Simulated scan of single mutants.
Amino acid sequence: MFNGRVDRQRLSSIAHTHHPIAAPVSGVTVNRLLRRADRGPAARILDLGCGQAAWSLQALAHSPDGHADGVDLNPYALERAAHAAEERGLADRITLHQRDARRYVADGDHDLVLCVGSTHAFGGFADALELAGRHVNRDGVLLVGEGFWETPPTEAALSALSTTPDEFTDLAGLADAAAKAGWAPVYAHVSEPAEWDDYEWSWTGSLTGWALDNPGHPDAAQVLDAARAHRDQWLRGYRGVLGFVTLVLRRG
């Protein structure tokens, strides 16, 4: 577990217990996006920053003869991903790699590459388009989830996110950046307020529940404080200001 101090990777894994999608996107929407990104029954799928592999495992449901590779640095998330794959009977169709997504080497012949809520691993949206895009074959799809300013950022939002106004652009700016990088959106979903609320309440609630269920653990108080701090940053900071869009991209 935490061995006396909060392990951030373990903290993240617990926070996503009840929302393994790990983005403000509902399960229904995940399926709709994957249908739009479908590359056939034998698709080769790569999930960069896969977390618990919720996206890639569901993508395999749309490609019954396909295979997926999931890449993440978090060993706890990968452990949960392996368990989920076993439960769904998909363990023989997914390979999990504990590696830095930015430095992951593949043959560039994937039909579908996923990078949802993980562009920071590449240094931002533009770098993710370039580096993750190298793994996509000529007729493939790059499915990217990224934050954007739903409204001009307030001081409270900037403080809560510990960021600056130029950290994100608006939605039009993301579309422009994709076009500049040679990608054309064929579909997109902008997360709705209810999806954001479900994600954030699940994130903070999972931590709170763990702390309350393990009151004698040396990290229980710190985990509870982390949940409270995050909830406050969301509710008093970036709620309704930071948006999230998942783009289905093909080469333009």
Score class of each variant (00 low, 15 high):
214 N>Q: 12
107 D>P: 06
137 N>S: 01
228 R>Y: 02
212 L>P: 00
90 L>M: 14
97 H>W: 15
45 I>N: 02
61 A>H: 11
56 S>P: 06
80 R>H: 10
251 R>H: 15
5 R>M: 06
50 C>E: 00
202 S>W: 00
141 V>A: 12
109 D>P: 05
205 G>M: 02
33 L>C: 06
13 S>G: 00
172 A>L: 08
42 A>T: 13
191 S>N: 11
200 E>H: 13
139 D>G: 06
171 L>V: 02
32 R>G: 01
39 R>I: 01
142 L>E: 03
225 D>H: 13
130 E>I: 11
137 N>T: 01
231 R>K: 11
209 G>P: 00
55 W>S: 04
130 E>Y: 01
118 S>V: 07
148 F>W: 05
224 L>R: 10
21 I>D: 01
155 E>M: 10
82 A>V: 09
136 V>W: 07
179 A>Q: 12
182 G>C: 11
141 V>P: 06
176 D>S: 13
39 R>G: 02
174 L>Y: 03
196 W>R: 09
167 E>T: 13
51 G>D: 06
228 R>D: 03
49 G>R: 07
233 Q>I: 00
3 N>R: 13
217 H>F: 06
158 L>R: 09
236 R>Y: 04
28 V>W: 00
200 E>G: 03
1 M>A: 14
41 P>Y: 01
79 E>R: 14
243 G>K: 06
71 V>D: 00
39 R>E: 10
56 S>H: 09
241 V>W: 00
144 V>F: 04
62 H>T: 04
68 A>C: 08
248 V>E: 04
77 A>V: 02
185 P>H: 09
92 D>M: 03
196 W>M: 13
92 D>E: 15
184 A>V: 04
27 G>Q: 11
180 K>A: 15
155 E>K: 14
24 P>Y: 03
126 A>K: 09
102 R>N: 06
173 G>Q: 07
5 R>E: 11
102 R>F: 07
151 T>M: 06
224 L>N: 01
205 G>W: 05
75 P>M: 13
195 E>Y: 11
84 A>K: 09
131 L>K: 09
150 E>D: 10
18 H>V: 06
89 G>S: 13
235 L>E: 12
210 W>Q: 00
133 G>S: 11
160 A>V: 07
195 E>R: 09
90 L>R: 11
10 R>W: 15
231 R>W: 03
118 S>Y: 02
39 R>A: 15
38 D>A: 14
14 I>M: 04
165 P>T: 11
222 Q>I: 00
112 L>M: 09
224 L>A: 03
227 A>Y: 02
206 S>W: 07
90 L>K: 09
243 G>V: 07
159 S>L: 12
222 Q>M: 10
251 R>E: 07
206 S>V: 04
213 D>F: 01
233 Q>W: 00
164 T>F: 07
216 G>N: 11
41 P>M: 04
77 A>P: 01
141 V>K: 05
